Amino acid sequence: MPAPSSPPRRLAVVLFNLGGPDAPEAIRPFLFNLFADPAIIRLPNPLRFLVASLISGRRAKPATAIYAHLGGKSPLLENTEAQAAALEAQLGSNPGLAGTESRVFIAMRYWHPMSAETAAKVKAYDPDLVVLLPLYPQFSTTTTASSAKAWRQAADTVGLTAPTRLVCCYPTQAGFIDAAADRIRPLYEAARAFGTPRVLFSAHGLPKKVVTGGDPYQWQCERTAESIAAALGVDHLDWVSCYQSRVGPMEWIGPSTDEEIRRAGRDGVPILVVPMAFVSEHSETLVEIEIEYRHLAKEAGVPHFTRVPTVGVHPAFIEGLVRLVGQTLVSDRPACSQNGGRLCPATFSGCPQPGR
């Protein structure tokens, strides 16, 4: 449906995120929901159901140990709620939305509040326009596309018919990039005391066959790393784009973050690990990077290790989200990138934008 030609009377912004278990007993069902997603395990049912049951059963115990470091639960919902509150406040004071009532909702993919719950709340709010805003800056068929599909199904179920726009990606959006660079600068300067630092721009990995099948995620992650590196303004910056969280026997995209940590140890250089595809703190940043990778760095002989925080509620990031929302109000596209149109080369068939 076309967007309203004038500013909406009521605007609903729905933040997408993956979600996380909110108690130890939620860990296994959360994992099952994750691996039962056809965008993650690309098998037909009932085989996918059986595989998801098997994997979630096997991974529940090690995942419980991971979440024990975080008090038995994921902090992702609280972090996302803080981002939602900051965004709602900024939307309310934005001159371009004068006369518009804006409310920000949260829809998690694999744990509560999930799309079905949130879609019912959005329908009750009765908006004139719904903007779907993923907290995944880089588009992937496994994240943004999966969340958008779940939302469409939920909206249809509850009878939510308001015009809807999806912000599909913003891998190099200025607010996101500036916020990330601002997080890095003081930590980079501190690391100089231990040598010339190397910056590891780390993102959650994907099986290689997903990328070769047309998913633009890796290409967009590389553009994010390039943009943050340029924004830092450090002459001859030593940096690399890499990937973490590999699971299973399949070949994954690389280089892997743990391989890069070991290489830094051999080179004797200090490192900063930047979570370039995560904008909210959760187990991959607070446990995998902060605890596991820090331990690996010590074992590998890295002279200094720093985990750079996510952009969180950094003002530049939140203002960047406001600008993304504003763009959708004047767009007639069902999906809008940070520039409105397609960012990805035509070779990426998984991109939601028309080819060029």
Rank of each mutant, 00 (worst) to 15 (best):
P7H: 08
P8S: 06
P8M: 10
A12W: 14
V14I: 14
V14Q: 11
L15T: 04
N17I: 05
E25I: 04
A26I: 03
I27P: 14
R28P: 04
R28V: 05
L31D: 09
P38Y: 02
I40D: 01
I40A: 04
I41W: 07
R42H: 13
N45P: 05
L47G: 07
F49T: 14
A52Q: 02
A52T: 01
S53T: 03
S53W: 12
G57A: 00
K61I: 03
K61E: 10
A63G: 05
S74H: 14
T80R: 11
E81C: 12
A82G: 03
A82M: 05
A84P: 06
L87M: 03
Q90W: 11
L91D: 08
G99H: 12
S102C: 15
V104T: 05
R109D: 01
W111N: 12
W111T: 07
P113S: 06
M114G: 10
A119Q: 10
V122I: 11
D126V: 00
P127V: 02
P127T: 02
L135I: 07
S140F: 12
T142F: 12
T144G: 10
A145T: 00
T164A: 14
R165G: 03
C168K: 11
C169T: 11
P171D: 03
T172Y: 15
G175N: 15
F176L: 15
F176D: 12
D178Q: 15
A179W: 14
R183M: 15
I184G: 06
Y188G: 06
P197M: 03
P197V: 01
R198D: 11
L200T: 11
K209P: 02
V210D: 10
V211Y: 07
T212D: 12
T212V: 00
G213W: 06
Y217P: 06
W219A: 04
Q220E: 12
C221Y: 05
E222C: 01
E222G: 09
R223N: 00
R223Y: 02
A225P: 12
A225N: 15
E226R: 11
I228P: 14
I228T: 09
A231P: 09
G233D: 04
D235N: 14
S241W: 14
Q244E: 04
R246Y: 08
V247W: 08
G248V: 01
I253G: 09
S256L: 08
S256H: 12
S256Y: 14
E259N: 13
E259C: 06
R262V: 15
R263I: 07
R263Q: 13
D267T: 00
D267L: 10
D267H: 02
D267K: 13
V269H: 05
I271M: 03
I271C: 08
L272Y: 09
V273W: 06
V274Y: 15
A277W: 06
F278C: 00
V279L: 03
V279C: 09
S280G: 00
S280E: 00
S283W: 08
S283L: 13
E284M: 06
G301Y: 09
G301A: 00
F305Q: 10
P309T: 02
P309G: 01
V311T: 15
F317N: 04
E319F: 03
R323I: 01
L324H: 11
V325S: 07
V325C: 11
L329T: 10
S331D: 05
P334N: 07
P334Y: 12
A335M: 14
C336M: 12
N339T: 09
G340V: 04
G341C: 03
R342I: 13
R342N: 09
G350H: 09
R356Y: 09
R356H: 13
